[in-house]
Design a protein around this nucleic acid. Structure first.
Length: 195
DNA sequence: TAGAGGATTGAT
DNA sequence: TCAATCCTCTAC
């Protein structure tokens, strides 16, 4: 079952980030389906320095984050990697959840084709890798997440408190104290969690 | 309009 | 540990 818009509209971005664990991210590129189970996320909010939209800073790139929740925010990092975010909250409030890693579910052969011949557990174990494996690029920026190209689904997988791992976010040393926020959520001992 | 730098990856 | 590589933002 596809996640309802109300799932994304919720006000607490960290709650959405936690709830996304165990959900499936599915893409349909020219009729070819590939999907993965989300095992690692990070929350970002305009209220803290790790976020592109810190302090309400709005640019052409991050404009989508200011829209209503439930859209994809895809941007290029380091000139070579596409990163996939889920926009949350209501219009005017810039918050998003970065999907950092998924566990391959469907279309594994297709992912291999896109990623080259790598070990199964390296197919989608990082934010730049999973976008490539699933065929996501910047042209997907702004798509709503309940259409037929890309969507999220509840596949009934529960993440217990025991499995939930909370930690500091990665790669935002420049954010000062905000880099210490425990806004990274992952499934403990899952092979596809990055690093 | 030019220059600096980045929410990463993969090879060395 | 470091280079690849190019878009985005900022400042001139």
């Amino acid at each position: 079952m596809k996640l309802e818009p109300s799932f994304y509209y919720r006000k607490n971005v960290t709650t959405v980030a936690r709830d996304l664990l165990g959900k499936a991210l599915i893409t349909n590129v020219k009729g070819q389906i590939s999907s993965g189970i989300i095992v690692e996320t990070e929350a970002y909010s305009w209220k803290e320095r790790g976020c592109h939209a810190y302090n309400g800073r709005k640019t052409q790139r991050n404009e989508v984050m200011f829209g209503a929740g439930g859209k994809a925010y895809v941007y290029l990092c380091y000139g070579m990697h596409h990163l996939f975010n889920v926009v949350t909250n209501r219009e005017g409030i810039a918050e998003a959840v970065l999907v950092r890693a998924v566990e391959p579910l469907e279309g594994i052969d297709l992912m291999r084709k896109r990623r080259g011949d790598v070990h199964a557990h390296q197919l989608t174990s990082g934010p730049g890798k999973l976008t490539r494996a699933l065929g996501i690029d910047r042209s997907w920026n702004g798509k709503v997440l309940w259409n037929d190209d890309v969507w999220l689904e509840d596949i009934g997988r529960k993440v217990s408190g025991k499995q939930l791992e909370v930690s500091k976010r990665i790669g935002i040393d420049y954010a000062g104290e905000d880099a210490n926020l425990l806004w990274r959520f992952s499934i403990r001992d899952n092979k596809w969690v990055s690093r």
